[in-house]
Design a protein around this nucleic acid. Sequence first.
DNA 1: GCCGTTTTCGGCCCGACTGTTTTCAGTCG
Length: 574
Amino acid sequence: MKNREIARLFHATADILEILDANRFRINAYRRAARVVEDLTVDIAELAASGELTELPGIGQGTADAIVDYLETGEMFGYESVRKEIPPKLAELLEIPGLGPKTVGMLWRELNVRTLRQLKRALRSRKILELPGMGPKKVLKIQGGVRAYESRSGRTLLGAALPVADRIIELLRGVKGVKDVSLAGSARRWRSTIGDLDILVTGSDPKAVIEAFVGMDGVVDVLASGTTKASVRMDDALQIDLRVIAAAEWGAALMYFTGSKEHNVRLRGIARKKGLKLSEYGLFSGDDRVAAKTEKAVYRKLGMPWIAPELREDRGEVEAALDRSLPTLVTSEDIRGDLHHHTSWSDGFASIEEVARAAKRRGYEYIIISDHSQSLSIANGLSEERLLEQGEEIDRINKKLRGFRILKGTEADIKSDGSVDYPDEILSGLDVVIASIHSGFEQSQEQITGRIISAMENPNVDIIGHPTGRLIERREPYAVDLDAVMRAAAETGTALEINCHDERVDLNDIHARRAVEMGVMISLGTDSHDPSQGWMMDIGVHTARRAWLAPQSILNTLDRRALLKHLSRSGPAR
DNA sequence: GCCGTTTTCGGCCCGACTGTTTTCAGTCG
């Protein structure tokens, strides 16, 4: 799949055009094209082959030609020609906070700044102060941006940011006069990584809220602090934006601050067509505010039902809302059990009984114990004998539990030759078999894909665990041909996992949506190694929502009997 | 560069904050 590469080239083209001060709508067109390609659930080469590229919104003749050009030659003519217009590393400077395309372009033209090193030298020179719009404070601000850029650690995992958000929300609720506090931004949309945290507050004393916010523990840098808006950087480099708004504008502000930016742009376009104006202060007809207090009211006046935050990515949700075809999304209440959990029998930290009781407290009907298999010795994988012993232990504990069932499972390794790490007679005695790749990551696409497909052809294999093997921001996916895997999953009736662990989220939202479109069932598993990680099911559920999934597409919404029946297993009698 | 229930040209989302200005440009979200 060349989708990501093509999207990257469109983004790069837009970056360069910005520095060259090209028409901003042309720049936006490239950004939109990049995003459309990025979000595609199909291989762009297929669309190119069938001549359907220009049917995509935002892809016209120019960008379609560029895509075909790249697919055929490995180079994109448009990009190659603008690339020569600026020094090779100049566009990287755009990633420095506080430094935008205008300033980068000016510094290059006036002071011949072409690299980060030359930028740092220029910031110390006196000549920079002679440039228009440049003063001592601006220089300090950019120097601060350079420091942040050099020490940056990429995006923050949602699982790490949510506890911080909870703590801040708790703190702000305690400020005098505060009425409502809400998380907004990409965290409210449950993106698996976030750039910053956005928090919204309404209350009678904005000044007190801003003061409490910029003065809280852990703040190392106040980036902005106005009467309604403030930004801080925390000691772990996480940036947090706060906005204090009037109660009458709560809904409009929540929409604005939740984004995505692209979703908001679409809505504003629709407002404009209706002769209205949408901003964070409300939906206006001239000077009259026609809606603002709740999100629902604003959406209604735009002619559509409320759209769940997880869908607000401009991936077709606006069109679906307009013609009343939004999906019924799965919710946490639909989930009957966790389909992937480890215990101290392998590399987990809790006993089977502790895991089961915690799952029962979460309101589940069942949990699958899926410890590692024998060849994963580094994780204390279970030999055949120990797996059978574990089964007896599960039987004993099940007798003690009422209204809850521990199912016998395994997360069996898919070995380098594609075989599964236990013999069929062992696998067929289990309730659920997950098969995952934990070795041979460096194999070719053909080998990796072949391994997974041969595992799925084993009738005892029910679920493929973390199908791409990525670790967010740490390890790239192995070279798997996901399309081929999804086709085989549909044919063999094998489910694909959304591994809910915050470091994995694998399948991701786009993949999961594609899989279900191809007729594949999705399994949600937290891959917990301790019951305290069970909450990550929320990450999986909301990722499934981001993938537009209804309960029917998800294995864990089945009750125990229906689940075992679906997996073609009789299962133990109650 | 894309797009069209005001179509093939003339539009294209909106506002806060900052630092530089003396009315505004750049950056960010």
